[in-house]
Simulated assay, not measured.
Amino acid sequence: MNLTAIIIVAICAGCLSSIISTLSNKKLKESNKFNQKERDDMLAQIQKMNERIETLERIVTDEKYNLNQQFADLK
């Protein structure tokens, strides 16, 4: 390899490294686009939904619910 080829490869490697660095920084900024209040609101909403799901699971797995469902099936 001559000196010109080495210089061209070094320049290309530097440019490629710069592009990769810029893209990774951009993705990092996009992943942090929710502020703390929005995150807290979403976590509170998820917690409320989990509580509702737990209540529904208790209702559906209750023996009385199953018995009522069997009566409804008989009608």
Rank of each mutant, 00 (worst) to 15 (best):
N25V: 06
N66I: 14
Y65M: 13
I59S: 06
N50D: 15
I11Y: 07
F71H: 08
K64F: 06
K37M: 07
N68Q: 14
N25Q: 12
Q47S: 15
C12T: 11
K37C: 00
Q36G: 07
Y65P: 05
C12K: 01
D73C: 06
E38D: 07
I46Q: 03
E38V: 00
M49R: 01
T22I: 10
Q47G: 12
I7K: 07
T22K: 14
I59R: 09
A10T: 07
R52L: 11
D40T: 05
K33P: 02
F71I: 02
K75R: 15
V9G: 10
L3E: 03
E54C: 04
K27T: 03
V9A: 12
V60D: 00
Q69G: 07
T55E: 01
M49W: 08
S24Q: 13
E51I: 03
C12R: 01
K37H: 05
C15Y: 11
I11P: 00
I11R: 00
L56V: 08
F71W: 11
D41N: 14
D62Y: 04
Q69N: 11
N32L: 03
N32I: 07
T55W: 05
G14I: 09
I53M: 08
L3H: 00
Q36V: 12
L28K: 14
Q69S: 12
D40C: 01
K75T: 15
Q70D: 07
E57W: 07
A72G: 02
N50S: 12
L74M: 11
D40S: 07
F71Y: 11
N35L: 02
E54W: 03
E57C: 03
T4C: 04
I7G: 01
K37S: 09
D62W: 04
L3M: 04
A72I: 04
I11V: 11
Y65V: 13
M42G: 02
D41S: 14
I20R: 01
N25D: 11
D40A: 09
I8M: 13
E51G: 12
Q47T: 15
D73Y: 05
N68R: 15
A44Y: 10
G14E: 00
N50V: 08
D41P: 01
Q45C: 01
I53V: 14
L67D: 11
K64D: 10
A72K: 09
S31A: 12
I19L: 14
Q70E: 11
R52Q: 13
M1D: 15
S17G: 15
L23S: 08
T55F: 06
N32E: 09
K29E: 05
T22E: 08
Q36A: 15
N50R: 09
T4L: 08
A72M: 08
K48M: 13
R58V: 05
T55C: 02
G14H: 00
K29V: 10
N2G: 09
I8D: 15
I46V: 08
N68I: 10
L56R: 05
L43S: 00
E63K: 10
M49A: 01
I6C: 03
N35Q: 06
N2W: 02
E51W: 04
K29W: 06
K33A: 09
M1P: 15
C15P: 01
D41Y: 15
F71K: 12
Y65E: 12
A72Q: 03
K27M: 06
R52C: 03
K29H: 07
C12P: 01
N68G: 10
N32Y: 04
T4F: 10
I53T: 12
L56P: 08
I7V: 04
L56T: 03
K29I: 09
A10H: 08
Q69P: 00
K48L: 14
